[in-house]
């Protein structure tokens, strides 16, 4: 990732924890990644791997008491950890936007789509109601909503799930962001609609030069639109690489097992592959490698010492890799 242009987003040694009885319980243990304009990075992992927390910390929206324990986040020119929360609010509104899992919850049921779009536009650009409505129509057109002008007067409950997610994407684009965080944007949608939404994201990335941080547990979707993948396990990135390399030569046993879980057309009928065991509980990491209890290839060295974090693409946090 040492391209000529510096990355738009750079996260280093990000640590997040929840307050516990005996001090903070860390759940994200030093995450590093970078993302450039026009690039899509996927954070992949099971529930509880810390991928959503990592993303939410970028926009200062950590839930229920969770807070950043350390690390640096740079967005464009701004070093997020040195700014006041007021300044952060300005940046995250203008430069970062987010698409949520459930488009129904992401839209306010009490207002029309047009009202919500114009509100969002006007919170960043001093436009008249009329000009904002015009812009809202353009946004709906951009995300592929048919007859956008008429749709401005629709309420969210009058639309289908796919259309709602398109509207939610338009809403996220209203402020003209450079970074789009998509937190499992297709989980609540039908499979055919999922593909459409992913295609839309890929097109928007190209047309608008967006940097997209995609959070997902679905490697199939990731393969469709992402450039790079960072696999997270127990609050750490255990492997990061280009999509092609991850699929072709997975280094970490966890990545391999995740890939094995994807059902294939030529599979023999039978039970689907799973990863036995569960991810470790918050603050109760096993000794040595955190993945050791579930790893089919674990040996004594894994028990004694945790492997080093991957420093560059192609490496994995595993004693057996490389």
């Amino acid at each position: 990732m040492s391209a000529a242009a510096p990355a738009f987003l750079e996260v280093s040694d990000l640590r997040i924890g929840f307050p516990g009885r005996a001090g903070d319980v860390p759940v994200v243990h030093g995450v590093d990644f970078a993302l450039s304009a026009g690039e899509t990075l996927a954070l992949v992992g099971e529930s509880g791997s810390g991928k959503s927390l990592t993303a939410l910390s970028l926009i200062d929206l950590l839930p229920g008491g969770a807070r950043r324990l350390g690390g640096r986040i740079r967005i464009g020119e701004n070093q997020l950890d040195t700014l006041s929360s007021n300044a952060i609010r300005k940046i995250r509104g203008g430069e970062i936007a987010m698409i949520f899992q459930d488009p129904l919850s992401a839209l306010n049921p009490a207002f029309t789509v047009g009202r919500q779009l114009t509100d969002a536009i006007r919170s960043h650009h001093p436009l008249s109601r009329g000009a904002a409505a015009k812009r809202a129509e353009e946004l709906l057109d951009l995300v592929g909503i048919p007859s956008p002008k008429a749709r401005l007067h629709s309420f969210p409950h009058e639309m289908s799930g796919g259309q709602r997610q398109r509207v939610a994407i338009a809403l996220a684009l209203a402020s003209g962001p450079k970074l789009l965080i998509a937190d499992e944007p297709t989980t609540a949608l039908d499979v055919t609609v999922q593909a459409q939404i992913m295609a839309l994201l890929a097109r928007l990335r190209q047309e608008l030069g967006l940097a997209i941080l995609l959070i997902s547990h679905n490697l199939d979707l990731v393969a469709e639109i992402c450039h790079r993948v960072a696999v997270m396990y127990a609050g750490r990135i255990v492997e990061t690489n280009t999509v092609e390399e991850i699929f072709r030569r997975p280094q970490h046993p966890y990545t391999r097992m995740l890939l094995d879980c994807i059902p294939r057309l030529d599979d023999r009928p039978g039970p689907l592959a799973t990863i036995p065991g569960e991810p470790p509980l918050f603050g109760k990491l096993p000794s040595g490698c955190p993945f050791r209890p579930r790893c089919p290839a674990a040996h004594e060295r894994c028990l004694a010492m945790p492997p080093a974090f991957p420093q560059e693409a192609g490496q994995a946090a595993c004693w057996l890799a490389a």
């Binding site: 926009i59 929206l61 609010r89 300005k90 995250r92 509104g93 203008g94 970062i96 936007a97 987010m98 949520f100 899992q101 459930d102 919850s105 992401a106 839209l107 306010n108 919500q116 509100d119 969002a120 919170s123 960043h124 939610a168 809403l171 996220a172 209203a174 402020s175």
Partner: peptide, 13 residues
């Protein structure tokens, strides 16, 4: 808890 509240926060409201 709804996401539209988070979305509004993100808009800087």
């Amino acid at each position: 808890q709804a996401d539209y509240v988070a979305a509004r926060r993100l808009q800087g409201v």
